[in-house]
Simulated assay, not measured.
Amino acid sequence: MFDRHDPFYAQLAPLREFSQLADPERFQPVPGDWVVGAADIVDSTGEIERGRYKTVNMVGAAVISAMINALGGQVFPFVFGGDGASFAVPGADAARSREVLAAMRRWAEEEFAISLRASLIPVADIRAAGRDVRVARYATSDGVDYAMFSGGGLAWAEARMKAGDYAVSPADPGAQPDLTGLSCRWSNSRALNGEIVSLVVQPTERATERDFADLAQRLVVVSEGLARGGHPVPPAGPPMRWPPPGLALDAHVSREGGNLALRKLLLLGQNLLIWILFRTGMRLGSFDPEHYRRTVSANADFRKFDDGLKMTLDCDGPTLARIRQLLDEAQSRGKIRFGIHAQTEAMMTCFVPSATQDDHVHFVDGASGGYARAAAAMKGQEIRA
């Protein structure tokens, strides 16, 4: 679907090979009148320590689902970061984006007692600061493609957000973002090759774009030597159990201010039917559970560029050792900062506009801290430096 305001992003041809995204020439600068939105959870590491990582992931993904719903299917670039999300939209959608971010801040606080910060930053200001916002599209399957970012502008925007600049104030009490389609009914996927490794790599000021592109290309080549390129979700999709482990979280997300207990009961019934369909392979109308399972895996977003490289890999020991060697060498030259967090399982948070279409979106992260813990390790390197 073409953007009714600005066809820039919709007209970008999606790339089919992830390794192509290591090339800076594959990215195009967004128009100068666009804005960047960014949101993340304050003290996400503390929330994880309290056992709330599934909630952290859900709130981060909720920012994206709320924006997709608010823009009515309009195509725009976004990226999921584990404990938050970022996006870029035309200036004509700035007011609506501000409303979404304001509602998200209020909802996260009232529903989960989570402090979400958010900012909306003009691309013109980012460029005035010497950074850029460039995007590309990467197609994981015929049904879904994801935005990739380069140019340093997204990282700059996130830093300004954390400093309190360009802040979006919370909406009035009771604000409810539209989170239709957001869910987490799948169980976690266990590592088959060794460990689920969450990796975050960012260039330093000393690294040129070509420096980082060369390293990213080498890391991607190494990871693609893994079974299925390190894809952490089984080909037939993650396991499903009843009752689903995320039932309470789904109830919070979908109750829209209604009674939580009643919503849980309704979801129990709905998920029982879904579980039976997946267990038996029975079709329901045009819904084919076997096809849906395969599409879930194909559509999963387990690696991305967002002014750096993030990957969640089902990784064996020798491959992880090679990745660490490449990272250590680049860090010793002052070219990068990186963080790695290993765990036994991967988790997934989903946005499903329709279960009978192939455009459902699935955000993958490690199940015990993932990108947030890897980023915390990277910050630790910055402090020691």
Rank of each mutant, 00 (worst) to 15 (best):
K264S: 01
D306N: 13
F112I: 00
Y146D: 05
D307Y: 07
Q202K: 15
Y166N: 12
R206W: 10
A22T: 06
L192F: 11
I276C: 14
P245M: 06
L273D: 10
N69K: 12
P243C: 11
D3N: 08
L192R: 15
A136V: 04
W156R: 01
V222Q: 03
A385R: 14
L320T: 01
D125S: 07
A375C: 10
D172Q: 14
F2H: 13
P177W: 01
I383C: 10
D307Q: 02
V89D: 00
T319F: 05
E329V: 14
R241V: 12
G60Q: 10
S354H: 12
L21C: 09
N57A: 05
V221C: 08
A346W: 00
P14F: 03
V221L: 14
R106E: 04
A367R: 02
M348D: 02
R279C: 12
L120K: 01
N259D: 15
N299R: 13
G194L: 11
E224K: 01
F278H: 14
E345T: 12
G281E: 08
R131S: 11
R50I: 07
R324D: 07
D307P: 02
G285A: 13
F338R: 00
A10Q: 03
A167K: 02
L272P: 07
P235D: 13
D307N: 08
I121F: 05
M348F: 02
A22E: 04
L120V: 06
A248D: 14
G258Y: 10
